[in-house]
Write a protein that binds this DNA or RNA. Structure first.
Length: 174
DNA sequence: TAGGCCATCTGGTCCT
DNA sequence: AGGACCAGATGGCCTA
């Protein structure tokens, strides 16, 4: 039947011939109802935790898929989450720039998007001899790993020079 | 040992 | 009401 914690307080009928036990029975019922409420909340929490865990697993799987298409050297290097996102951002920028330059060979490279750009990290990189000064995608914040190679340098890694150089330089043959 | 990264739990908020 | 999403807290593991 109906759980005791759902029965309105006033509707509990006294035990036949024992009206004096009513307060005790009410207290017992209240305790039981609190326990039931606790287990109900607990089971909801456990379910919510389970969903949250799953959600994060899916998020991590997506992040792994993203890692899978980013070039890292050595190949088995695992970028951290934040590095993966920043690197992807920069990598996409680099590829877009490559495409743009390939379509318009004589065009000058894109100007830095904002004065706050971390172009310095690009220029101070080993590839700084390149003529271009691409506006780093990490526009206004100093994330430290502003460019793909500064990120990799920070992790003692390297990128295929061609890729980045081609992405950064207005080369006609790309 | 301190600091960074990560997984998990948790409570709050918003949406369906 | 229940699920999704989010951010803070916490503890474990690893590395310099």
């Amino acid at each position: 039947g109906r759980p005791c914690w759902l029965i309105p307080p006033g509707s509990l009928s006294p035990a036949p011939g024992d009206p004096s036990s009513l307060p005790r029975r009410r207290a017992r019922c209240r305790a039981r109802s609190e326990a039931a409420l606790h287990t109900l909340r607990r089971s909801r929490r456990v379910k919510a935790n389970d969903r949250e865990r799953n959600r994060m697993h899916h998020l991590n799987a997506a992040l792994d898929a993203l890692r899978g298409v980013l070039p890292t050297f050595p190949e088995d290097t695992k970028l951290t989450k934040i590095e993966t996102l920043r690197f992807a951002y920069n990598y996409i920028w680099a590829l877009s720039e490559t495409l743009r330059l390939a379509r318009a060979p004589r065009e000058r490279p894109a100007a830095p998007p904002s004065p706050g750009s971390d172009a310095g990290s690009w220029l101070s990189s080993p590839l700084s001899a390149c003529a271009s000064s691409p506006g780093s995608p990490t526009a206004s914040e100093d994330y430290g790993y502003g460019s793909p190679e500064s990120l990799l340098a920070a992790r003692s890694l390297s990128l295929p020079g061609d890729l980045l150089c081609c992405a950064r330089c207005p080369r006609a043959d790309v």
